[in-house]
């Protein structure tokens, strides 16, 4: 497990993401550190984590509850931070995998400037194929999308110079809870 975490950390950082391995009780402090006073939208979090997030001073957008609101997209267009759960991690490629039913995890992961993905260390797998195999075997019902994220948004379209971000988040933080 320790080796996998180390490998994941290296791959994620190589991809331009930030790695955090913390004790559960430090979670809120770390989120405050990353998010500052910005508004936060979130989807697919464990209830206990959600309850803690509610203690934050930021304006919160619980997307799974808001998913049927007609003008949702307009409401969240300027929200700068998105927090999601994580369904699997792959060490070799530094990937996180999100299984999405209502697409709210996708909204929280792709629309904001900062994406924070919270993961359980038990969900780490050696390779991307192992991680996908795991989520496919454990999906209950019809997931409309599975998103594999391997770093913050980037483009290399002008003279192959890599620039971050392009249309997605500028920062990707993966927080792994021990």
């Amino acid at each position: 497990m320790k080796d996998l975490l180390e490998e994941f950390k290296n791959s994620l950082e190589e991809n331009g993401g930030s790695f955090h391995l913390i004790e559960r009780e430090k979670l809120i402090e770390l989120i405050m550190d990353i998010a500052g006073k910005n508004d936060i939208m979130y989807s697919g979090l464990d209830e206990s984590i959600e309850n803690e997030i509610k203690k934050l001073n930021s304006k919160l957008y619980p997307l799974d509850i808001m998913s049927n609101e007609k003008n949702l997209k307009e409401k969240i267009r300027d929200v700068r931070v998105g927090i999601t759960g994580t369904d699997a991690l792959a060490a070799e490629s530094g990937s996180i995998v999100l299984v999405d039913f209502n697409l709210m995890k996708s909204f929280a992961a792709f629309l904001p400037e900062i994406h924070i993905a919270i993961a359980d260390e038990k969900k780490i797998f050696p390779t991307l194929l192992d991680a996908i195999d795991h989520v496919m075997k454990n999906i209950k019902g019809n997931a409309s999308a599975i998103q594999i994220i391997q770093g913050p948004s980037k483009t290399g379209d002008i003279e192959k110079k890599i620039v971050r971000p392009s249309h997605g988040p500028k920062e990707l933080h993966v927080i792994i809870l021990r």
């Binding site: 998913s67 049927n68 949702l72 209502n102 409309s144 998103q147």
Partner: peptide, 16 residues
């Protein structure tokens, strides 16, 4: 950066 897998239209939402 991203590999997207699309399986269908979303459930339980009026968005997307």
């Amino acid at each position: 950066t991203y590999i997207h897998i699309i399986n269908g239209v979303p459930v339980d939402t009026s968005n997307g």
